[in-house]
Design a protein around this nucleic acid. Structure first.
Lengths: 123, 123
DNA sequence: CAGTATCCCTGTTGATACTG
DNA sequence: CAGTATCAACAGGGATACTG
């Protein structure tokens, strides 16, 4: 009879099978959440959008040091992730509004927990 | 009298001044927390250490696809971050145990929230 | 106003092989 | 057993200049 290693999982930490992965996998919920907020500036953009819909220039004004390229790419990625919705009014000059989707708003508790954890670590 | 833009901050999202940054800054608690768990494989190593102290080979066995180089580097970084403690028993063969520090254990609620958020996003 | 287009640079990851 | 050493490959981020 061969040895068998039975690994016990802490259900409060890893409640479902998807988290019992032995390598980084998109199927792991932790990876899914990390992928949602991945990228420099991303959490700052999300924070600003949590206050409500914002125009492109309002977002840029709130983050003076971000380059157009990066802000545009961040917003495009957040759109592709289904976290942000973009609406452009026809006419000139162009006016574009970005706002969070329901999925985007679902990130609020995570941002709060990141903040709490960061403050804890400071001590 | 010049115009003045008064930005209102949601205290439940950004409770202290450290989060009201206009660029990625190590002073922001969110950045601190993200830095703690940054890096591929990192959350998996932390997850395994949440179950208690582990030897180097136990960690490697739990993550068969990680290379020695990356596992070693991950552990070194987690040590440098003050999240993991390393203890080596003298003698041969070497036996080394890794365990979470108090700071490392403080990450548990964040991992749980990452998991919850990831599951939410799946729907 | 709201973006694009280039180009470069640097850090991170990984494969493979070797060691006290 | 518990790592190091080396090197190659890649992706993300940023500076700058231009456009419908």
């Amino acid at each position: 009879m061969a040895h068998q290693t039975v690994r016990t999982w802490d259900e409060s930490l890893v409640p479902s099978a998807a988290g019992r992965t032995d390598r980084p996998s998109p199927d792991c919920p932790v990876e899914t959440a990390l992928a949602a907020i991945a990228g420099r500036w991303t959490t700052l953009v999300l924070r600003d959008l949590m206050a409500g819909p914002q125009s492109y220039s309002a977002l840029r004004a709130a983050l003076p040091q971000i380059s157009d390229k990066v802000l545009t790419e961040r917003l495009a990625v957040l759109r592709a992730r289904g976290l942000v919705h973009r609406s452009a009014e026809p006419g000139f000059p162009t006016r574009v509004t970005y706002e969070l989707t329901d999925a985007g708003r679902a990130l609020r508790p995570l941002l709060v927990e990141l903040y709490r954890t960061g403050e804890r670590l400071r001590r």
